[in-house]
Design a protein around this nucleic acid. Structure first.
Ligand code: SF4
Ligand code: SF4
Lengths: 149, 149
DNA sequence: TTAAAATAATACCTCAAGGTATCATTTATG
DNA sequence: CATAAATGATACCTTGAGGTATTATTTTAA
């Protein structure tokens, strides 16, 4: 599997924001804790805003805030918010149009794997994530990317 | 998850060849049953040859043959043969360098998912695939891509 | 020995995801 | 009001995976 990098970023961002979920987070603060190129992060923040999963406040002292209770936001919600709708291809072999007269040996196995992943992502909330080591998995070590304004 | 398209193609190719595993298959025959762009398929055939998972015979009446018993070739072997060494990123968030003072809530869940997938891929052989609907999952419907020599 | 039928090698093209740069807009505050 | 500090919009650049095109090589068989 590969989540798109964009989804990985979104997951980092939301997890970070969940650590102080009522706060208005500035893009700059988020940048300093995550390892995401600054301008790309900025772009994605407005994307996430458009998706409705966060809200933005413009102007001086502006920033972003999680729009719902972190107990109600699943990791799958976050992935979907980025536009990645389907995380794994339906057919293991990548066929768009399988005849499916009778299923091949991989069909059910693959289906099971996909369901398993979906179940984990759908049942894990930001709140749960937040209870467990957010100060760790958010690599709040020193910044590794230079910002360049 | 996404296997690379190249890996999906390799899985199709090997599955197809496994249907007649002692035969010398011409690239052209393979092309007509799978939905893979012809020239790209040709390129990949020589790649697979270099990897050793198939052997090639040049010249007129040449072609490709599976190099080992299909009972000994796992789907994971095929994926590895394409150069895709790691099918899922280790860290769910895509961090290269997680501090890991204490693991975050996703670490074990993600690990389990990865192991599960690996286990399925490593334990499913071409032979098993071949017992179950190869005439179906190999979309041997009419060709959908034009070959252009 | 020559032509045809196959694979091999090499170089190039294309496109979307990821990333950057610039300017515009909004808002707080002195 | 003017400035600064924040986000928004827009356009562009870069890179690698996927895909094409061309030429070279190997082998069979008429
Ligand atoms: S039966 Fe096999 S080939 Fe067909 S869609 Fe399912 S996994 Fe793909
Ligand atoms: S603990 Fe969490 S953030 Fe760290 S490597 Fe594991 S999954 Fe990634």
């Amino acid at each position: 599997m590969n989540l798109s990098k964009t989804s990985e970023y979104a997951l980092r961002i939301m997890s970070y924001m969940a650590m102080d979920d009522k706060k208005l987070h500035r893009a700059n603060d988020i940048f300093e804790s995550l390892q995401i190129p600054f301008r790309y992060l900025r772009k994605q923040m407005t994307n996430l805003t458009k998706s409705g999963i966060i809200i933005s406040v413009q102007g001086k002292n502006g920033g972003y805030r999680i729009s719902r209770s972190i107990g109600e936001i699943s990791l799958l919600d976050i992935i979907h918010a980025t536009g990645d709708q389907q995380i794994m291809t339906n057919c293991f072999f990548g066929f768009e149009n399988c005849a499916l007269n009778r299923q091949c040996a991989m069909h059910d196995k693959w289906d099971e794997i996909r369901q398993n992943i979906n179940q984990v992502l759908a049942s894990t909330s930001l709140a749960e994530l937040n209870e467990n080591g957010p100060d760790n998995f958010i690599s709040n070590n020193s910044i590794q990317i230079t910002k360049n304004s």
